[in-house]
């Protein structure tokens, strides 16, 4: 079985717990790793309502955490000798992932098992692996 290109989808700093498994999987299959952090616009609005904080403040915080997570993964992947490409986008995770699958010819999607994963399982044109 060959998996040439994998995309790891992250939407939250708590997704950090699946990154080691993603790196190991890429090492095993000698896959290139695209790492995508999506700053979900809907989630920011919900958080702003819940916490009474400004959307802009929350967005900056999430974006900063997202970039930090991306570079931490890159550091781990680098040690494992895995090619990586980092991406951060605003929007809806499922829509953006589909765009990446088409644009870069990704063979498999890695995502934490939660709602986004369920939506991707039913609509993706490539295998989705829930970690």
């Amino acid at each position: 079985m060959k998996i040439k290109k994998v995309i790891l989808v992250l939407t939250d700093i708590n997704d950090q717990d699946i990154t080691q498994a993603a790196v190991q999987l890429c090492k095993r299959f000698k896959s290139k790793l695209f790492v995508l952090f999506v700053v979900e616009t809907g989630r920011i609005s919900r958080l702003a309502r819940l916490t009474q904080k400004k959307s802009d403040t929350l967005r900056k915080k999430i974006e900063d955490e997202g970039w930090q997570l991306l570079y931490l993964i890159e550091d781990d992947a680098d040690k494992a000798g895995i090619w990586t490409s980092l991406h951060l986008e605003d929007g809806i995770a499922t829509t953006i992932v589909k765009k990446y699958i088409d644009a870069y010819g990704v063979d498999a999607v890695l995502i934490k098992r939660k709602n986004e994963a369920t939506r991707l399982f039913v609509s993706s044109t490539v295998p989705v692996i829930g970690l």
Binding site: K60, E63, D64, W67, Q68, L70, Y71, L72, D75, L88
Partner: peptide
């Protein structure tokens, strides 16, 4: 190092 990379990436977006 990670913080600097993150800050710079965010700034340049």
């Amino acid at each position: 190092y990670i913080m600097a990379l993150a800050k710079l990436s965010r700034l340049l977006r």
